[in-house]
Amino acid sequence: MKKFGSFLLSFALVLGIISPSASAATNFSDVNKSTSFYSEIQFLVDAEIISGYYDGTFKPQKNVTRGEAAIMIGRMMELDGTKRATKFKDVPASHSGSGYIASAVSEKVISGYPDGTFRPNQQISRGDMAIILANAFDLNFRPHYTFSDVTSRMKAYGPVLALAAESITTGYANGTFKPHDAVTRGQFSAFLARGLSPLYKQKAALAGGYAQNMTKQYTYAEVDGDVVHTYKYIDGTINGMPLGFMWEAKRTKDGKVVYYMQFENRDSLASGLPYSDISIDLKYPATLHKSWKSYGNSNDYETITKVNTTVTTPYKTFTNAIEVKGSSGYKSYYVPNVGQVKTIDPSGKTVSQLKSIK
């Protein structure tokens, strides 16, 4: 997120001590705690990224226009929103979003059309939204899975997958993304909030999944000392490529750090190092004897050898773990809504086990 890394970093510090429930209620007459994405809307209102209409409403069910998207993205990125002339014949200086539109175009976050128009009142689709957000957040990673209705021939193909890799979207239960559907103001707020905060990424996570909770800090007791795993925004690069939100595994003994990512959808759980290969850790549904390849081109297999098994760790004893045994002989144990809790090598020695969650 090179365009506003310091902004994200300051948000991360604030979110570390303020929970969504601590915020005051919105003043919108049509938004209350029963409204879908209420906390996401409140979060963005508090950050002065979104606002309502002159009549005191927010209209969460209203479809987002290109002009509104540019304004919200512009505020999030702290771009210059001063009204001014633009290069688009349908966006005069008097337009409420002229400054943000001009700035967002200059930052290559959004673009106009070949006929010289911007079409600020045109509704954006989910595919267009993915392109805008991927540009704004400078997203580059892709998960191991795709959506059945998003093909490589589509302009939104890469951006949609980038949003999935960033846990900004999980798509629909039937494996689709619906790139041509419109986006409501409430939905757009949710996507923005997920891009900015692990709190909202976790809200959209797979219920009953086996990925680590992005709002928790995990400490594992390992052979070479304790390792603390924290999901956070990493303001850095690897070989010139940005990192962004991901897991940091830091060994307390010598400060050695490794960054990694987890990807989970309704089909599987996977993990990998940034800009590297991705391994399939689990295939869903996680049933006894299910087997799969760890890597696409390898001969390594993983198999679920036990379900609802008991595993003891320094943190606690779990009775609902699943045991996964690899062709290399290693055994790993996963617990729903917790993640991996223990790993044992082929000789039976424990090499990693959960020590604490906070």
Rank of each mutant, 00 (worst) to 15 (best):
N174H: 12
V341P: 00
N299G: 12
L282W: 08
H229S: 10
M214S: 13
K325Y: 07
Q61Y: 14
Y231M: 08
K250A: 04
R84S: 01
V227M: 07
R75L: 03
Y157F: 05
L282T: 12
V31H: 02
I344P: 03
A211R: 01
G244M: 00
S167E: 11
T237Y: 13
L163R: 05
A93W: 03
P20Q: 07
G112W: 05
D277C: 14
S197A: 09
F188P: 04
T319A: 02
A204T: 06
E302V: 09
E248H: 10
F147N: 04
K62V: 12
A24C: 10
G74M: 09
N121G: 14
K253S: 10
L139E: 11
T230P: 00
Y260W: 04
N213D: 15
F7I: 15
T313Y: 00
V14Y: 15
E78I: 10
S332I: 04
E40P: 05
M246H: 01
S19H: 13
L199R: 13
V311R: 10
M246L: 14
A204G: 02
T170R: 13
L161M: 09
N140R: 08
Y334S: 05
K59N: 13
T82V: 13
Q262A: 04
F318M: 03
F137R: 10
G5N: 15
T184Y: 05
K33M: 11
G81D: 10
Y218Q: 08
L8P: 12
G195C: 07
A93T: 03
F191H: 05
G225T: 09
I322H: 07
Y210S: 14
I278M: 07
V183P: 09
G272V: 07
F147W: 04
Y210A: 11
V227D: 05
V64I: 12
R126I: 00
I124F: 08
P159S: 05
S197W: 02
H95K: 14
P314C: 06
H180I: 13
K316H: 03
A207C: 01
F43M: 11
K83D: 08
D115K: 14
A190Q: 00
D345L: 00
P179W: 02
V91P: 02
F88C: 09
G74T: 00
Y210G: 12
T350Y: 06
Y172C: 11
R126S: 03
D254G: 02
S19T: 15
G171M: 07
T57S: 15
R142E: 15
S125A: 05
P314V: 03
S10G: 14
F318D: 08
N213R: 11
A182V: 15
V109T: 01
A130P: 04
D80I: 03
K33H: 07
L133R: 04
T219I: 13
P242Q: 04
D46V: 04
M246I: 13
Y145T: 03
K256L: 11
P114N: 11
R75T: 00
L269E: 02
S271G: 14
N63R: 06
Y38E: 11
S23P: 06
G329C: 01
M76S: 11
P346S: 08
V258G: 11
L163W: 02
K325D: 01
S103N: 02
K232N: 05
G225H: 01
I234P: 08
H95R: 12
I304N: 10
L269M: 05
V351G: 07
T343P: 03
S268F: 13
K33Y: 01
L133S: 02
K178C: 14
I280V: 12
D281V: 05
I17W: 05
H180A: 14
I124S: 07
